[in-house]
Every structure is written in structure tokens, then in C-alpha cells.
Design a protein around this nucleic acid. Structure first.
Lengths: 196, 196
DNA sequence: GTCAGTCGCATCACGTATGTTGCGAGAAAC
DNA sequence: GTTTCTCGCAACATACGTGATGCGACTGAC
């Protein structure tokens, strides 16, 4: 989205990446931060930021797009289509957590104001729903589970785990999967009896 | 925080409330919205907003404070100290969901830049941790459960449920409690065996 | 009914973020 | 080694949000 007419020279490409990573950090701690702050964090002049990204909105769009693409790649790398649901769950979670820890802010940029991130996130969401459906068919998820609720809970738990840096990736993923599938309770006193 | 020296006249008090509710709506859909937009949504002049709230920051502080107080009241109303953990869980969840649906944006205003909301949220968090500890002692939560993880997951699930308006309050609360305690899976293939 | 409080409106000052342009030095590409 | 790209710097224009002030009309409170 940042003038992809001719491939950038290597140093310019590096600058773009540096700016995007700086933007992630800066906007992460203050979403209303200025281009100036982003430039400073990236170690470049403000005009350079503006040369690479026509506007603040374009920068946010590119930031969201980069994160969204890595997000989609992380999901695809786990081959959720061909792997048994439980294994896929775990592997997808591990991969996504890595991306989510690298782009905690940018991964929330999928509003309708930027088409590409919105489209990519929608595709990933579809993949996720397919995985959940398969898990349900295989008896991993309850037959009466609300799959929308399940997916949203899954996303939320991933968000929590990504922010808990005292967990390494594998422990974080285990927490997410175990909690989503089995909760943190003993089952004593639950309204809904425990069976598929 | 908004000049509490003398009690406001009734119409002014109504205006303050109207502005706060408008601010919730406006900032909810765009956190970077201007005072002008808030004023317009509230049906008052911009100068009136400014008369009641010395600065944009003061408005955000008051907004966060109102929501935090209602949040704390919602938790206390469930008497989590004296009620059996499972009942308390459910009742707290119901009460909090109501507040969270009314102040979805304002309830996130507990950063260190505003003392009162920060303090109130910290107190509620402490109450929550006590409830979780008691639940664990009573065998409702696993003995090996990480209570920090449990609380954060709880908060996250409440956030999800609050945004799912297709659920009424009671159904939303049931989803939260059931999922937190028992997950959405059947237990088949779980790494961690299901026992206290 | 009087009075103080409240609101809308018009106006102003000020700071800051945004976006643009031109130029010179330096570095990558060939 | 030449050419083209890239960056930093300086300067500029503009828009917008914030915050303040004064005045006139209205309205709750007593």
C-alpha cells in the first residue's frame, strides 16, 4: 500500500520495516502518538516517515497489513486443514501467540477503514471457524457448544496469554488450549453436566 | 473531580450525566474523538462541556471514575464475601455484565494517569482475587490453578460476553461461568486429567 | 418574585500535528 | 565510476483541537 510500483532499494526497504516496528511500539503505548514520535523511535526524520507513508492513515493501514499477513501465515503454517483438531489447536495457538507478541497493537487494526487487514482477518476467522467445526465433529468440542462463542473466547484467551510474558510460548499455548477446552474448575457444582 | 465544591443545581447535574453518557458513546466508537463531537452527541454547546470539565483529561477522569464506582458497587452488591463461591461467581458476573454493557469504554479507563479509577479497579481486583482464592479452597477451582491466569481469563470472558448483545444478561453470565470453570470441550484428549 | 446559577453563542489565543517542497550529501545499484 | 535513489534538514502552509472570556436569555431554588 506504500507505493508498490517499483521495488524499493534495499536501504529503503529496511527503513520501511524499521518505521513499522517503531510504530508498533509507539502506538502500542499510546495510540494517539504523533508521526514525530514514531520517527524518533525509528531513528529517522519525520519527513522520511512521510515519504514512505503518504499519511498517518496510510501508515496505520500498512502496519495492519503487515501484521495481518504474518497472522495469516502463522495460521496456515499449522496446516489446520489436514492436522487432527487437537494438534492443530495447539500448533495454531503457538504460532499465533508468537505473532501476537510481536504485533500486539497492529493485530487490532482490522477495522473497515482499511480493506486489506479487514479481508485477511476475515479469512483467518473463516479458517478458525472451520477448525472449530471439525473439532466439534470429532468430539473434541461439545456438540451443543456455540461455535461463535467458542471462537471469541479463544481469541480473548490468546490475547490474555500474549500479554503474560511470564509465560513462555509453549506454556502460554497450553494455558489457552487447556482453559478453552476444560476450564479452570473441577467440575463440582457445574450446571451443565460434563459430557459431549 | 469536576468541581465538587458546591452541589450542582439539578439541571446542571443532568447535563453532566448527559455529557458523560454521550462521551461513553462517542469515545467508544472513536477514542480520539474531539470535545466538539462529545458536545454535539450530548446536545449541548462545546463551551458547556468545557464548563463542567476543565479539560479533556478531566472529562476522561470523571468518565472513568463514574464507571469504576458503578463497577465496584456491582461487585459489592453480590456480597462475594459471604456468599458461596459458585453463587457469588454467577451473581457478580451478572451484575458486572450489566455495568460493562453500559460503560464498555469507560471501564477501560484505569490507567495510572487517573488515580481514582485506578484505585477503585485495584480494589475490585483484590476482591476478585479473594473470591478466586476462596473458590479454590472450596474445591470449585482446581488446586493447581494459576489464580492470576484465572482472573485474567475471567475478565476477558466477561469482555467477550458483554459485547455479544445477542445474549441476554443471564445467558451471557452462564456462558462466562460455565466456560471459565468447565471450558467448551468434552475433555477428550486433554493433556491435564480432569480432577481437583 | 427575586436571585443566583446555567446554558448558548460569538470570539479569541495558542499550541500542535499534518502534509509539502526543495536542496545537498551520501550510499546503493549497475 | 556514474547514475539514481534515499535520507536529513530547513522551511512553510494549513487545519484542528483545546482552553478561555464575556454577554444575554432563561430557569431552577428559595
Amino acid at each position: 500500500m506504500s507505493g508498490t510500483i517499483r521495488p524499493l532499494r534495499s536501504d529503503a526497504e529496511r527503513t520501511v520495516r524499521t518505521i513499522l516496528e517503531a510504530a508498533e511500539r509507539v502506538f502500542g503505548s499510546d495510540p494517539a502518538a504523533s508521526m514525530e514520535q514514531v520517527a524518533e523511535a525509528a531513528g529517522v526524520a519525520r519527513t522520511t516517515v512521510h515519504r514512505r507513508f503518504a499519511s498517518r492513515d496510510a501508515l496505520l493501514g500498512a502496519l495492519g497489513a503487515v501484521a495481518a499477513r504474518e497472522f495469516a501465515a502463522a495460521v496456515e503454517a499449522a496446516r489446520p486443514e489436514t492436522t487432527p483438531p487437537l494438534v492443530a489447536f495447539y500448533q495454531v495457538t503457538v504460532n499465533v501467540l508468537r505473532v501476537k507478541r510481536q504485533w500486539p497493537f497492529a493485530l487490532n487494526l482490522y477495522g473497515p477503514e482499511h480493506e486489506e487487514p479487514a479481508r485477511v482477518h476475515a479469512e483467518v476467522e473463516k479458517r478458525c471457524d472451520e477448525l472449530f467445526k471439525k473439532a466439534q465433529d470429532c468430539g473434541v468440542l461439545r456438540a451443543d457448544a456455540d461455535l461463535i462463542w467458542a471462537r471469541k473466547s479463544y481469541y480473548a484467551l490468546i490475547g490474555v496469554a500474549a500479554r503474560m510474558h511470564e509465560y513462555d510460548i509453549d506454556e502460554a499455548a497450553s494455558r489457552v488450549v487447556d482453559t478453552l477446552l476444560g476450564g479452570v474448575g473441577t467440575g463440582q457444582g457445574l450446571v451443565r453436566p460434563r459430557q459431549s
